[in-house]
Amino acid sequence: MATKRKPYVRESGRCWWKGNPCYRFYMLREGSSVFSIWVGLLLLLFLFSPAVFSALIKNPLVRLLNSAALLAALLHTKTWYELAPRALNLPEEKLAVLVKGLWTATIAFSALALLFSLT
């Protein structure tokens, strides 16, 4: 007897991420890395032409972009610290301690870098 099966396949379209808050946040998380290209280009400019760099970073548009880059970096750091330690097969309580340690190290290093750059 011929089969009467006719499985219906639902294709994932290009906008697969739009309908689910978790997917939208994933796209935001991954999209936050785009700002690291901007910061990388800015640092390259500093290496090759410090005078142009100093003038450019005072531009209001660049300040806005840098503020967005800082927020994106914070979001990426937060999600990274929550996700990456899970690559270690550690018990939940040790994972929580590790994430706290990572944040402490980040804050301490950022404070030191800020202090060093201001003095």
């Binding site: 689910n20 978790c22 997917y23 994933y26 991954e30 996700l83 899970r86 690559a87």
Partner: peptide, 18 residues
């Protein structure tokens, strides 16, 4: 690519993403 939604929906908390 570590979307992580698999672990959120897992009814037994098996944490496939990890």
């Amino acid at each position: 690519t570590f979307v992580g939604y698999c672990s959120k929906v897992c009814p037994k908390h098996a944490d496939p993403a990890a």
